[in-house]
Design a protein around this nucleic acid. Structure first.
Length: 421
RNA sequence: GGAGACGUCGCAUAGUCCGGCCGAGUGCACCACCCUGCUAAGGUGGAGUCCCCGCAAGGGGACCGAGGGUUCAAAUCCCUCCGUCUCCGCCA
């Protein structure tokens, strides 16, 4: 949720942000009206309620005929209060709906436009070259016996797979490498629930434009999370947290579930786009003034990961129109995928400023004895199953084997090469 | 799965039977000041969150697990839900 105060004071700022996103700026006027209506309803209710409270005190003291006459007048008031209260609920619900539809304010410098309008911030590492056509990760994985798509489909349907042997080990090694980087930077590991309540899913904004992406268990009214960001953001909901010692950083490891509705025919080969995968996710709660710096730190940790794994990548500043509703700015790190001859997203890191925390009600006290303020939240990927795609393809050898990056070897029992069985 | 108890301001509790004087007492912790002077004790005062009006001072409203209901009036009565605990049964 955006800051309602900002909406009232400078609607033009919000309109400008909506334009950058290519969204409908008339939303702002609708929201302003709803907000005004809400406050009007509240004022009306509170006046009536104050009267009722005052007379109620007299009723308690009075007796006999005096009491009877007081009761008669206040009885009527009671009905008015009730009606006014109903109007408040209605107005608040409406205002919350309209206000909630406004996406986060885009940060200064974010490229305007849609998906294709991203700006490349830097390209790092040598794009690998091959004699002849490089094999793709599925081809490699199957021939090495470490990825079994066929049986995944047999057991669970399309976009499911088994990782086997060194494939399974490599996924876990990636997670452990990421965990090591996280621990070095003060992150507290969390293994979160992957089923969450509707209000948490709502609070993180995934029931908006991503609603069709989310698995829902109807019998229990629970949602399967597509990222541990959801649970990590909900972790401190309705709390006043202490940031005086610096950011609160969590790293969550979880299985992620995505329906991939609407992506039929896209990335159907291999494990680029699947219904279930592992992800290690960073999540920081920070003082809003520190958010942009934390964002840069998160990218740098992600880059550190890719560099240590010997992957070529680029960092892009995602265009406003391609941001989720919660993000004020988003950087993607995309690794070179040889079989496709292009960069594909491996990580994403978003600065959600105070947007998410407002919905989830996470606050802090900037100064001792100061009043509370929403915190800023940021999230970013440290490792996912998809990384195996870039790793297998980048480190494939002419004989069909794959070299294990040195940093992963300790987590794979010292294995240096994955060879066909 | 069956039976019961409970859910109050950071923590621990009082209040709920007998609705109004309870946004709410007490203890601990916390903050400020005083006293004393030493690793303690005592005294005084302060302090919740959210919202609305207001430049401000200030005023008003809401919140006693959540949501409904009864009533002029609900922490207190009724209903539903959620959660915690205890006992029994069942199963790893």
């Amino acid at each position: 949720m955006i800051d309602p105060q900002l909406l009232r004071d400078s609607p033009d700022v919000i309109k400008a942000s909506l334009r950058t996103r290519g969204a409908d700026e008339s939303l702002v006027d609708t929201a302003l009206e709803a907000d005004a209506a809400r406050r009007e309803a509240i004022a009306a209710f509170e006046n009536l309620r104050a009267q009722q409270n005052a007379i109620g005190k007299d009723v308690a003291k009075a007796s006999g005929a005096e009491k009877e006459s007081l009761l008669a007048t206040v009885k009527e008031l009671a009905q008015q209060v009730k009606d006014a209260s109903a109007r408040v609920s209605e107005a608040e619900e409406n205002a919350a709906g309209v206000l909630g539809a406004l996406p986060n304010l885009v940060l200064e410098g974010v490229p305007a436009g849609g998906e294709e309008n991203f700006v490349t911030l830097r390209e790092v590492g040598m794009v690998p070259t091959f004699e002849g056509e490089p094999r793709d990760h599925l081809d490699l994985g199957e021939s090495l016996g470490i990825l079994d798509m066929e049986r995944g489909v047999k057991v669970s349907g399309s976009r499911f797979y088994f990782l086997k042997g060194a494939g399974a080990l490599m996924e876990m090694a990636l997670m452990q490498l990421g965990m090591k980087v996280a621990l070095e930077n003060g992150f507290v590991p969390l293994i979160p629930p992957t089923l969450v309540k509707p209000e948490v899913m709502q609070g993180t904004g995934f029931l908006g434009e991503h609603a069709a992406e989310v698995y829902h268990l109807g019998d229990d009214d629970l949602y399967l999370t597509g990222t541990s960001e959801v649970a990590l953001a909900g972790y401190h909901s309705d709390e006043i947290i202490d940031l005086s010692q610096g950011p609160l950083r969590y790293v969550g490891l979880s299985t992620c579930y995505r329906r991939e509705a609407g992506s039929y025919g896209k990335d159907t080969r291999g494990i680029i786009r699947v219904h279930q995968f592992q992800k290690l996710e960073m999540f920081s709660y920070v003082d809003p003034s520190d958010a942009e710096a934390e964002h840069e730190r998160m990218v740098s940790w992600q880059e550190q990961m890719l560099q240590s794994l010997g992957l070529a990548y680029r960092v892009i500043d995602v265009a406003a129109g391609d941001l989720g509703s919660s993000a004020a700015r988003k950087y993607d790190v995309e690794a070179w995928v040889p079989s496709q001859g292009k960069y594909r997203e491996l990580t994403s890191t978003s600065n959600c400023t105070t947007f998410q925390s407002r919905r989830l009600n996470v606050r802090h006290r900037p100064e001792k004895d100061a009043s509370t303020e929403p915190v800023a939240t940021l999230n970013g990927t440290l490792a996912t199953t998809r990384w195996l795609v870039a790793l297998l393809e980048t480190h494939q050898q002419p004989d069909g084997s794959v070299l294990v990056p040195e940093v992963l070897q300790p987590f794979m029992g010292g294995l240096r090469v994955i060879s066909a069985p």
